[in-house]
């Protein structure tokens, strides 16, 4: 059930340095997430994004708030 794409959100960043910074911040919180390539249907960018289960959205937003520059948080599909 959980690995259905519609159960995930992604955090998009301006650049990979921001994504790595976010990874460090989120690792410290113990939340579940994964760095994945930005899917083609979201952006033509060659960068990476952070995928996480949608039910953690509030916690992810709170953790990144004021810590990391985020471009957008949106559904994976």
């Amino acid at each position: 059930m959980m690995d259905q794409p519609e159960n995930y959100d992604v955090v998009l960043f301006n650049c990979v340095s921001h994504a790595i910074k976010a990874e460090k911040v989120l690792k410290a919180t113990g939340l579940t997430f994964k760095i994945i390539p930005v899917p083609r249907h979201i952006s033509s960018d060659c960068g990476v994004c952070l995928r996480f289960p949608r039910e953690q959205k509030g916690a992810v937003e709170a953790a990144l708030q004021g810590q990391v520059e985020v471009r957008e948080i949106r559904p994976l599909c």
Partner: peptide
């Protein structure tokens, strides 16, 4: 290549560059 390709070695390279930063 850090920040270029999004495969695990590219991401690991980006992590190392970030750690130095």
């Amino acid at each position: 290549s850090p920040g270029r390709s999004a495969h695990r070695l590219s991401i690991e390279a980006a992590r190392i560059v970030y750690d130095t930063r």
